[in-house]
């Protein structure tokens, strides 16, 4: 929560990732600016989450590198990487909350393990984080009894526990109703301002990006197909972008099929 400094916080340079010979990312270049909210958009299975896990240091790239404040995230020693991870928070898609711990204990866990703060202060910070995401009343509950939206909020609270400089959100609004999703978008905007935290979110929800993102990157065929402000993406005439943003195919399916059977009428 130091005052915002301008510049690049995290840089992805020519990252390629392949699983069992199937290349998922084919040379991604991306720059995350300090203090911004950046959405990684794209259809299911395009490698958004893979890219984000690579950016957060969980998944090493096959080629290329990720730098965090100029340090090669996957090149540094394990201990150094662990120190860098203290400055990052990640809210996983399904929450990844520890099911055996209460919501409060989940948020207190990283504080307890990674700081030397006294117990009373740890619990107070955990309660504060939960209050900030609107879960003040859910403190004693177990993750199993949370609704989908509450689970996402709890995951965000845990990711924020150590006051990270960069917050990774994996599909923060997927599977939620539009009202709950809008609540999460609003929360992301507020947290971005309150914690001066840089946010990188993976989503296929254009509405979310429009509401919360400063910039949005569209992933396609293993590369960044477009990187612009969300409203610019919406105005784009590029077919691939248009299809994703407007949820329909640019060439009408019936036209395509009439092309296919064009010869039949002449017979």
């Amino acid at each position: 929560m130091s005052p915002p400094a301008e510049g690049t916080l995290l840089r992805v340079e020519g990252v390629e990732i392949a699983f069992d010979g199937n290349s998922v990312l084919r040379g991604v270049d991306l720059e995350v600016r300090r203090g911004e909210v950046l959405y990684l958009l794209g259809p299911s299975g395009c490698g958004k989450t893979t890219l984000m896990k690579c950016m957060s240091g969980l998944l090493p790239p096959s080629r290329g590198r990720v730098t965090f404040e100029g340090l090669d995230l996957h090149g540094v020693a394990e201990a150094e990487r662990d120190r860098l991870r203290l400055r990052m928070g990640m809210a996983f898609q399904g929450g990844a909350l520890f099911n055996s711990l209460s919501v409060l204990e989940n948020v207190a866990f990283p504080l307890r393990e990674r700081t030397g703060l006294p117990e009373a202060e740890i619990l107070a910070i955990a309660r504060l984080k939960l209050a900030m995401v609107g879960l003040a009343d859910a403190v004693p509950l177990l993750p199993a009894s949370l609704s989908g939206g509450m689970r996402k909020r709890a995951a965000i609270a845990r990711a924020l526990a150590l006051d990270p400089e960069i917050l990774f959100l994996d599909e923060p609004t997927t599977g939620l109703d539009p009202i709950t999703a809008a609540g999460i978008d609003e929360l992301v905007t507020k947290l971005n301002a309150a914690f001066v935290v840089t946010v990188v979110a993976v989503s296929h929800d254009m509405a979310s990006a429009r509401a919360a993102a400063h910039r949005a990157a569209l992933l396609g065929e293993g590369r960044i197909a477009a990187l612009a402000r969300p409203e610019e993406l919406e105005r784009s005439e590029d077919p691939a972008i248009f299809e994703f943003v407007h949820r329909r195919l640019r060439s009408h399916p019936s036209e395509a099929s009439s092309d296919l059977f064009a010869g039949e009428g002449e017979r």
């Binding site: 005052p3 009373a120 107070a124 309660r127 209050a131 003040a136 507020k190 301002a193 309150a194 914690f195």
Partner: peptide, 20 residues
């Protein structure tokens, strides 16, 4: 108070109990 601190405090509802 710095703006960010003000924003952060505004996220906490009045009367939220922080101590156990």
């Amino acid at each position: 108070a710095p703006d960010a601190l003000r924003e952060a405090l505004s996220l906490v509802r009045e009367g939220t109990r922080l101590e156990a």
